[in-house]
């Protein structure tokens, strides 16, 4: 039984049809790589999963329950988290505010619901420590942090509320070599805890090293569904570009 199941997802923006009926299944604890060229529809598909966009057709179920009618906030509450490529951080707010954005815990004081800053700071610190991230201070605006530190905040936000599935959009694109390894380690760690991950990445080596399965989107359809242990760089590249002579491109990718 799949944790997350997408069937026949179609989406167009005005006259431009982006997705023509995509199927995608993710099991619990499975790491799925979602790859494809620019404009293949990867980000659109994931924004449909998180509820930022509405699908024109198709169904989305989480644990066999449809989430189509839920708002982005409600889907997050059900356990669908996404780490966006631009991280979607409020740069002038501090770490705790970002982690709890939209889900701030409140205390009732004289009938007024007051945001519980103390609890937010405490839990944010616990989460940051658990990730082993080094931040100058959790009361500083996140805009003053380095790229890797900001990413830690975005990851901490996705993991604080016990997600069932975490979608990562190009999490390693802007990182230093050492930081890339720690993100890949984190994905393995999530898998071992039974949390599913959908990894969108152009770095095929990263995808090959960490995923169980690779789904290739091409021109708005799922062009290939490959088991990572049975596939090769050339097969993946061939699926991305759509056949033809791919030896040179595959060799280039394999060199990393």
């Amino acid at each position: 039984m799949s944790l997350l199941s997408l069937t026949g997802i179609k989406k167009s923006f005005g006259a431009v049809s982006v997705l023509h009926g995509v199927d995608l299944n993710v099991d619990a604890g499975e790491v799925v790589g979602l790859i494809g060229d620019n404009g293949a529809g990867k980000s659109t598909l994931m924004k449909i999963v998180t509820g930022i966009y509405q699908a024109d057709e198709g169904s989305i179920t989480l644990n066999d329950e449809s989430v189509l009618d839920l708002t982005p906030g409600a889907r997050r509450a059900r356990g669908i988290e996404m780490i966006y490529q631009d991280l979607a951080l409020a740069k002038q707010q501090d770490v705790a505010s970002n982690i709890f954005l939209g889900r701030e815990p409140v205390r009732n004081i004289l009938g007024v619901k007051i945001v519980d800053r103390g609890r937010m700071k405490q839990e944010a610190q616990v989460m940051i420590d658990r990730l082993g991230a080094k931040l100058p201070s959790i009361t500083r605006p996140v805009g003053s942090f380095s790229g890797g530190q900001q990413q830690s905040v975005a990851i901490a936000r996705a993991l604080t509320f016990d997600p069932k599935i975490v979608i990562m959009d190009e999490p390693t694109a802007a990182l230093a070599v050492r930081e890339v390894q720690s993100v890949l380690d984190l994905i393995r760690q999530l898998k071992s805890q039974g949390i599913s991950v959908i990894l969108i990445s152009h770095r095929l080596n990263d995808v090959l090293s960490v995923t169980d399965r690779i789904v290739v989107l091409r021109q708005g359809t799922a062009a290939a569904n490959l088991k990572t242990s049975d596939t090769s760089m050339s097969e993946i590249v061939s699926a991305i570009v759509g056949g033809g002579d791919v030896a040179e491109a595959a060799a280039h990718e394999a060199r990393g």
């Binding site: 930022i52 982005p72 409020a90 505010s97 954005l101 939209g102 619901k113 007051i114």
Partner: peptide, 25 residues
């Protein structure tokens, strides 16, 4: 300064997209 309404107000002004993805209307 201390209610969710106020914190969301600042977040929207800070990064509208982040607020939207966080489920704020």
């Amino acid at each position: 300064a201390y209610t969710r309404y106020g914190r969301h107000t600042l977040s929207i002004g800070d990064n509208e997209n982040a607020a939207r993805t966080a489920g704020i209307n």
